[in-house]
């Protein structure tokens, strides 16, 4: 179901599952667009030389995935604030899963709060945060 207005939202609602594209190719496109060209994001070997387990998905890209999930759930949603904590690295070329859950609804002002997570295949939370979203 497409969410258009605050009346469409239920407390505790889980946003549709979203599997982000963490491939090296996509990360390279992203960092070129963002102007973040550090090798730790674009080259596994260079990242390992820095002592990392491999290339990292930039935190801002994880944040971008989470915002995209919100827009896929409610295409007209206006993000008023998105706040993400990078708890552990999100690794390039490894599957990750992102989730969103509605944890508060302010029907009067048409705002919802959403818990956000990025987890790896082991179910470990790598990024968490919240978004405040305005729906018409």
């Amino acid at each position: 179901m497409t969410v258009s207005t605050i009346q469409d939202v239920e407390f505790g609602e889980e946003l549709p599952a979203f599997k982000p594209d963490t491939s090296l190719e996509n990360v390279r496109i992203f960092v070129a667009a963002a102007g973040w060209g550090a090798a730790r994001f674009t080259d596994h070997e260079a990242a390992r030389k820095e002592g990392l387990p491999g290339a990292l998905v930039p935190g801002i890209m994880s944040q971008g995935f989470l915002a995209a999930m919100i827009h896929q759930w409610a295409s007209d949603a206006r993000i008023v604030k998105i706040d993400t904590v990078f708890r552990a690295p999100v690794m390039v070329d490894q599957p990750h899963y992102i989730t969103g859950i509605v944890t508060d609804i302010n029907a009067e002002d048409s705002y919802v709060e959403i818990d956000l997570t990025v987890s790896n295949e082991a179910g470990e939370t790598r990024v968490f945060g919240t978004a405040t979203v305005n729906l018409a």
Partner: peptide, 18 residues
């Protein structure tokens, strides 16, 4: 403009306004 589009698509945005 082009960087906005690349940024949005890489993140998985499909909303046309992005």
């Amino acid at each position: 403009q082009d960087k906005i589009i690349a940024y949005a698509k890489a993140c998985g945005e499909i909303a046309p306004r992005f």
